[in-house]
């Protein structure tokens, strides 16, 4: 489920105000997403990798695991990128580069796909480096402090809290199926059973949601959640924010 392996630590990156991290990642993502000059994109990727490296070095006990872990976490985004590679080189018009049967790949198409790969990886690496060094809890509170709409923050918290409960329910149902000799195969019985499983999880989750809401009502909930935590900017946070934002601004200006 949700692992927070990177969130334990006491480096500069860990102690950084979570609001600063979120703001910087947003700034970095936007600038990287709109840049189209190769040197700028390379620099953006390097910057993201540098931040990730700082985290990997900081989480000493994970130093050896970190590169593999980083690659594992990059997998989902690169799955999408693979699909782009399957399509873009052959659909963007331009100078032909090579042919694959009846398909003609263009130089422009290949460059475009490469650009998207670099951009998305740079953004996700920066995200992993900064966001995973924060506990989910702090992240939620930081979002609240940054005036992210309350409903989104609650959704975030509730997802974090109940995904485990729902997962346990899923495991229980699956085990109950197994114990009665269920063996998944490619047949209608399997599809039907899985449909029941999914349906049952939905029903249970919805009932659970209702009970949680009732329990909240019993404790005087009137549609407002209050946060117990405060954030305070320290000099280190401001220096970091200033320096790192300057880097991003330079990237943006360089791109022209």
């Amino acid at each position: 489920m949700i692992e927070e392996g990177f969130s334990q630590g006491n480096s500069l990156l860990h102690r950084l105000d979570a609001r600063v991290k979120i703001l910087w990642v947003v700034l970095f993502s936007v600038v990287t997403a709109v840049c189209d000059q190769w040197p700028v994109l390379t620099a953006a990727l390097a910057l993201a990798l540098a931040v990730a490296l700082a985290l990997a070095l900081a989480v000493a006990f994970m130093a050896r695991v970190a590169p593999r872990e980083l690659v594992r976490r990059l997998m989902p985004v690169n799955l999408f990128v693979i699909f782009l590679w399957l399509v873009l080189p052959f659909t963007v018009t331009g100078d032909p580069s090579f042919t694959l049967g009846p398909l003609v790949a263009t130089r422009q198409g290949i460059l475009y796909a490469t650009q998207i790969s670099v951009k998305s990886n740079a953004i996700v690496i920066a995200l992993i480096a900064l966001i995973t060094s924060t506990s989910i809890l702090t992240l939620g509170h930081a979002m609240h402090a940054l005036r992210v709409p309350r409903k989104i923050v609650y959704l975030f918290f509730f997802t974090y809290r109940y995904i485990f409960v729902i997962y346990r329910e899923y495991i229980r149902l699956k085990e109950a199926m197994k114990i009665r000799g269920f063996c998944p195969g490619t047949n209608l019985h399997t599809y039907k059973t899985y449909a029941y499983l999914v349906g049952m999880i939905l029903v249970r989750s919805s009932e659970r949601a209702e009970r949680v809401h009732q329990a909240m009502l019993c404790r005087g909930f009137r549609g407002r959640l209050y946060s117990l935590s405060d954030f305070s900017m320290r000099t280190a946070d401001m220096v970091w924010m200033g320096a790192m934002s300057a880097c991003v601004v330079v990237l943006g200006l360089w791109n022209g």
């Binding site: 509730f158 404790r219 005087g220 909930f221 959640l225 209050y226």
Partner: peptide, 17 residues
């Protein structure tokens, strides 16, 4: 009953309300 991420937040939920 326990919906908050941490124990303290959950126990403080009622009093805050």
């Amino acid at each position: 009953q326990l919906f908050s991420p941490t124990v303290l937040e959950d126990v403080a939920f009622g009093p805050l309300n």
